[in-house]
Design a protein around this nucleic acid. Structure first.
Lengths: 283, 283
DNA sequence: ATGTCTTACGGAAGACGTAATAATA
DNA sequence: TATTATTACGTCTTCCGTAAGACAT
């Protein structure tokens, strides 16, 4: 049984549709059809009952899929963990973060790691907060610096590393723009934008979402809504068409370090120590 | 991770030798080398420390192999079971047996199955006793008729279907040839041949082994030793250069039906019923 | 008639073996 | 020096997409 046959089988069992299966696997539908055919020949019985209109799994197919899926998942987990293990052993550390404020801290901590662990290679990746945590979960990076609360299982969070005030970004022409402070109640009824998936569960469903901070701020300037941001945004995204107003009584945004419970190599530990020391030095 | 990469990794971990690994996988050593190389590139670290003189697994390799092996075994088990399942559903029954005496019984039982289950396809395979049981264990056949005691786990045995006397095959010119009966003690000190792996644990290591009954009898005729056989052999392998002498006080050879605990399709049950009825009808 | 699965076919990627090379004991 | 892993390279399989066909609704 070949890797691609297994993945085709499991995906088609999920989708029950050759076209969507092909899309998920990034191949043509013809390839899916061919693959299923040779697989059925190998097993010796049809795995799917299908017309050009409907696809369903047979009894033989169902049993095979049920027994196969946990095993194949196990294979993939083993490989992923091995890739992480290899990175540790090779003396590499991948760090992900969001935004320019975090970048500064991360870069300094990285150079501290390089000084303390000569020969260590530190890779930095920037992305949106939600993507950063997905990278961490998938093992693409070893440490993440993120402002999100993070309910992910298997991921540990370190101490708070940065605290910043919560501010509201509003169009420069908006009545609130001139205020020195706003309260939650004052914008409870206006639409509040959220970055895609980034707002977590604390913000109710946003009417519009943006893929990046630049996009989000442009939407705000266009009058599509408002946006809660950290205080650093005022420094790093100054725009004449926007105003940033502190939110009264709002809890501070807390940036933490996150890492996977398993696979904490020396690189991770040193990086976290270095970050904490940098923060304390400043404070 | 491709199927061939996994199998190469696990086999090389067993053998710690590229040549033997290549032989077991029926490929060239170059292919093994190439495959390990791309796998290591994919993981990101060496999996084996190797010189042209010694191969050993690295820490990363060891962990990957430990986690991978049970999962991959599970994948293969799932596929094997599915092939058996498919055969049942398709209305097929594969029966294995040894020797012409068993053949007669099996053929009659097979035609009874075909009569009772119209459209059922019954396939017969003949092989040496030990091979027959290996086929059963590996799922190549559904039922086996064999004279061996069978200590295999996961395999169930049915009632005794045929009993026959134990006889000793000796060269026609041998002093024992003229006897009407011999006792165990009389040939305790002469070499006794065994078919390869077939004698099980009840016979001590044989000085020579043969792959088939014909070969074994030829060795006996050539004076290489003697052979314990069932009484039917006298009827089906009559030879002028051999004599068959009953063994006094020896336990009878008992032929039983065997099948796997899981995967007992209707074909298996009907076949066993039919065989029992045939035997009772004769008795 | 339209959406969807299957078949036919050709080009390209890579699988794989042979043979030469390098390296170790 | 003998054994064994690696590299280079050419061949040939088979992978896989395009496009046309078949089928159900």
């Amino acid at each position: 049984m070949e890797r691609f046959e297994i993945e085709t089988l499991l995906t088609l069992a999920d989708e029950l549709h050759f076209g969507r299966t092909a899309a998920r696997l990034h191949v043509s539908t013809a390839r899916v059809s061919q693959t299923v055919r040779v697989l059925e020949r190998r097993i010796g019985a049809p795995l799917f009952d299908r017309t050009s209109r409907r696809v369903e799994v047979t009894a033989v197919g169902r049993r095979l899929i049920e027994e196969l899926r946990p095993m194949w998942d196990g294979v993939e987990r083993a490989v992923d963990r091995s890739i992480q293990h290899a990175r540790q052993v090779a003396g590499e550390l991948a760090v992900a973060f969001s935004g320019p404020a975090a970048a500064q801290l991360v870069v300094e901590a990285a150079s501290a790691v390089r000084k303390r662990l000569p020969g260590f290679v530190v890779r930095l990746r920037e992305g949106e907060p939600s993507q950063v945590l997905r990278w961490l979960r998938d093992g693409d990076v070893d440490v993440a610096l993120s402002p999100l609360p993070l309910p992910q299982p298997g991921v540990e969070s370190g101490p708070v590393v940065v605290r910043e005030a919560r501010m509201l970004a509003v169009p420069a022409t908006h009545p609130l723009a001139g205020r020195s402070v706003v309260s939650f109640e004052e914008f409870a009824r206006v639409p509040v934008l959220g970055e895609a998936e980034a707002s977590g569960s604390e913000q109710s469903a946003a009417p519009l979402t943006a893929g990046s901070m630049h996009e989000a701020l442009t939407l705000v300037a266009a009058g599509e809504g408002m946006l809660q941001v950290g205080a650093h945004v005022r420094r790093y995204y100054p725009r004449p068409d926007l105003a940033y107003v502190p939110i009264a009584g709002a809890p501070l945004i807390e940036w933490r370090l996150f890492w996977r419970r398993q696979g904490d190599g020396s690189g991770v530990r040193v990086f976290c120590r270095a970050t904490s020391e940098l923060v304390e030095g400043v404070a």
